[in-house]
Simulated scan of single mutants.
Amino acid sequence: MHTEPNWITTPITAGLLRGALDLERTEHGVRPHRLPARARAQCADGQLAMAEAQPSGVRLVFRTGATAIELDALRTKTAYQGAPPRPDGVYDLLVDGRLAGQRSVTGGNVLMVDMTTGSAETRPGPVGTVRFPGLPEGVKDVEIWLPYNETTELVALRTDAPVEPAPDRGRKVWLHHGSSISHGSDAASPTTTWPALAASLGGVELINLGLGGSALLDPFTARAMRDTSADLISVKIGINLVNTDLMRLRAFTPAVHGFLDTIREGHPTTPLLVVSSVLCPIHEDTPGPSAPDFSNLGEGRLQFKAAGDPAERAGGKLTLNVIRDALSGLVEQRSADDPNLYYLDGRSLYGEQDCAELPLPDRIHPDAATHRRMGDRFAALAFAPGGPFSADRAS
């Protein structure tokens, strides 16, 4: 005869969460944020607000003898008018570091975005529950990684045995900032975004400030990184500056200097890795902005195209190759006085041969297999002996 567990409800506090920089109280529970309130107050952009509240890399971490876990959550899922439905977000359950379950939450809100006008409308929905029954007996360390592609309000955590914070394993903390690719776009699950995979292989704790559409050298992001404790730092720069057509080369180079200067105010000697964009054929030599390409929508595919003109490079418009040249020269210049500053060409993570084998499905974002390849390669390049994040270099 089936009997319901004797549930214990544990308050969800900052002590149970890793990867978030702020925790907002809501009418339903708590909402993890990846930018602090002061940073959020300095920009009214809806894309940034959506991206930073999608908890990429954020996870509940605790120790328990529970064999059943339930998590009530209210998701806000993004949908695009006229486009195929986006896949549901996935919750990854890790037990003692190994994947032990995957679930999605039902219900929730839908943020409907019209890409032709930029307007958005929220359609409300109910709180849902993610259930992980049948876990092994005995005390264990549990991690529940939240979906990278859904804004998440955590409502209640229930277990059939007491919960306590997991012990500090003494791992180094890697703080990473990048675009939607770092955010996780089109990865299979939250633990298989390329930064999460690289962090696992490197044996480090990840704080992922990959912000879809919002890796734009914003000063408030640099200040958030300056003020966040970290042992290793990386900044991936390129694609968002091109596909938003945000600035020209004259503004770009000083903006990068300023971004790095701000980080260095809080982390003067921390290994700091500047990474340029992975290969993106539509923008290698053609400026932005990017525009939606609806020509294959009937086949269920939304793609992107470059709306700029290669001739506009003469006027200072940015392309990925222009940015790579500027970044490599800038890092070389600064490294004369900053021996802990490094540069990595993003095409070493995903280049021409990779594109031939694993083309970008929408012409900008990698698929799940490419995330795995990028995570493996970053770990091999950054964390291996002699790499910028190797144990002998890390502070």
Results as ranks from 00 to 15, higher is better:
265 E>W: 08
53 A>G: 05
44 A>I: 07
258 G>I: 03
284 E>W: 02
349 L>A: 03
198 A>M: 07
4 E>A: 14
236 K>D: 06
330 L>F: 15
19 G>S: 08
282 I>P: 09
175 L>P: 13
121 E>Y: 00
15 G>S: 11
10 T>F: 08
239 I>F: 06
222 A>M: 07
82 G>C: 04
394 A>M: 11
129 T>C: 11
362 D>C: 11
56 S>H: 01
13 T>P: 06
277 S>Q: 10
172 K>S: 04
384 A>C: 02
42 Q>S: 10
148 Y>F: 12
143 E>D: 09
218 D>H: 09
63 R>F: 02
300 G>E: 05
221 T>Y: 09
350 Y>G: 02
122 T>K: 11
298 G>R: 01
184 G>N: 08
350 Y>L: 08
103 R>S: 15
92 D>L: 10
392 D>A: 10
281 P>W: 01
85 P>T: 00
230 A>G: 11
353 Q>L: 14
119 S>G: 14
379 A>T: 03
250 R>W: 12
94 L>G: 13
348 S>A: 13
368 A>G: 06
119 S>F: 00
120 A>D: 15
248 R>N: 13
317 K>H: 15
349 L>G: 01
58 V>Y: 00
357 E>I: 12
180 S>K: 02
347 R>N: 12
298 G>V: 01
148 Y>Q: 06
86 R>V: 11
23 L>C: 05
130 V>I: 06
352 E>V: 02
380 A>Q: 02
41 A>P: 00
171 R>C: 09
370 T>F: 04
294 F>Y: 13
130 V>S: 03
326 A>R: 14
48 L>Y: 01
67 T>V: 02
5 P>F: 05
26 T>I: 09
31 R>L: 14
225 M>F: 05
53 A>P: 00
222 A>R: 07
69 I>R: 00
41 A>H: 03
16 L>K: 04
44 A>N: 10
258 G>Q: 09
102 Q>M: 13
158 R>I: 12
3 T>A: 15
39 A>E: 06
265 E>Q: 11
392 D>R: 06
315 G>T: 10
195 P>Y: 03
98 R>E: 15
129 T>N: 08
184 G>K: 07
314 A>S: 14
204 V>I: 06
276 S>C: 06
307 A>P: 09
227 D>Q: 06
128 G>K: 02
330 L>P: 00
122 T>S: 15
34 R>E: 05
175 L>K: 04
316 G>T: 07
